[in-house]
Design a protein around this nucleic acid. Structure first.
Lengths: 188, 188
DNA sequence: CGTCGCATGTAACCAGTTACATGATTAA
DNA sequence: TTAATCATGTAACTGGTTACATGCGACG
């Protein structure tokens, strides 16, 4: 599942420019399981246009480059369905932070606290942000096409919440244990 | 944080061959936040040897290629500490499954069930496997160098458990809602 | 006066994946 | 007999990241 397919997915939810697509990857409902920078999105969009899966309508703007708004067409929609019918690749998760914390005994408690606090803040912000863009309508009337987004949104929040809880409840203990172990070492 | 650094990390916990390192990425304590296949590990190991960060002792074996066991040396350890002192890159998580579930309204309930059940099984297996290789000693005596691994291990289990719980508790509802929405559509 | 947000793109680079090459042993 | 485990490696590919290029408006 490459950037091209991901773009198809974003466009299936509504027309957008390359710039807006990237925002979806960063902040929007796709942010916790997809990624892509300008350097991959713009070429992908050009490729999809050349392949006839999306249409582009140029909108002239004052003192700015033309805004190119892309819209999924029927062939593009079929291509998306095709990707959806494929067996999914395994999730991939990579974390520098966990790698570092794995070697907690080689870090000072101060640095550990810094690293963990930064991540706690990150999760708190992320959760706040997600609470403010829940995909279900305020009146509770879920439309058929918000079922998936709502499910995925809830999944993301659960996982982030679990991560946050873990860090909050185990941080002090880790700091403590590491400090004691290092004092013991120094005393030897 | 590239494969070279990750290999350094694995070797800091004990000598290993390329083959064994890959197993650590797949099953071992590094499996939930690091990855790498043979095609990246072997070149990385050769590079680290050339750079003088690890030492290699060849062990002849019957009817098999020589087993090359690598060991971290002082320079390699310093390099690891250097990497640990760097600001960590953001976590990256990519999930085909979540992307697919996002478009639940375009999938049949049968396929949704298949996808979700497969993932439920995955998390159950993973959690079982993790329970059987907890980094704390059975007697509860944590050594200083198991503090980090134990913390990271606990983190991973919490997050997997949260993901599993979510899928288990919300699966039926999603299937139901999607089926109803699709029936309504067909009736129109 | 700086930097963030808007807005698009290219080119070089690089890291990692995939496929290939080899081959014995053991369990299903 | 088929697949998995052990065991190492190379070469081609591919995909995405990074850095560069351009430029105005708004906010602090």
């Amino acid at each position: 599942m490459d950037v091209k397919t991901t773009c198809l997915g974003v466009l299936a939810k509504g027309e957008a420019s390359g710039y807006e697509i990237r925002k979806h990857f960063e902040d929007g409902p796709f942010s916790h399981f997809a990624e892509g920078g300008f350097g991959s999105i713009y070429p992908a969009l050009n490729r999809l246009t050349a392949d006839g899966l999306i249409d582009c309508s140029q909108q002239a703007q004052d003192k700015r480059p033309d805004k190119k708004v892309y819209r999924l067409n029927d062939r593009g929609f079929d291509a998306l369905l095709g990707a959806l019918a494929q067996p999914p690749a395994e999730d991939r998760y990579k974390s520098d932070l966990l790698f570092m914390l794995f070697f907690a005994d080689h870090l000072t408690p101060a640095r550990l606290a810094l690293l963990i606090d930064a991540r706690i803040d990150f999760y708190r912000d992320k959760l706040d942000q997600m609470r403010n863009c829940a995909p279900t309508e305020p009146d509770g009337n879920a439309t058929s096409d918000s079922l998936g987004p709502a499910f995925v949104h809830g999944f993301g929040m659960s996982v982030y919440q679990a991560a946050l809880n873990y860090l909050e409840t185990h941080k002090a203990r880790l700091l403590d244990d590491v400090a004691r172990a290092q004092n013991a070492d120094a005393a030897e």
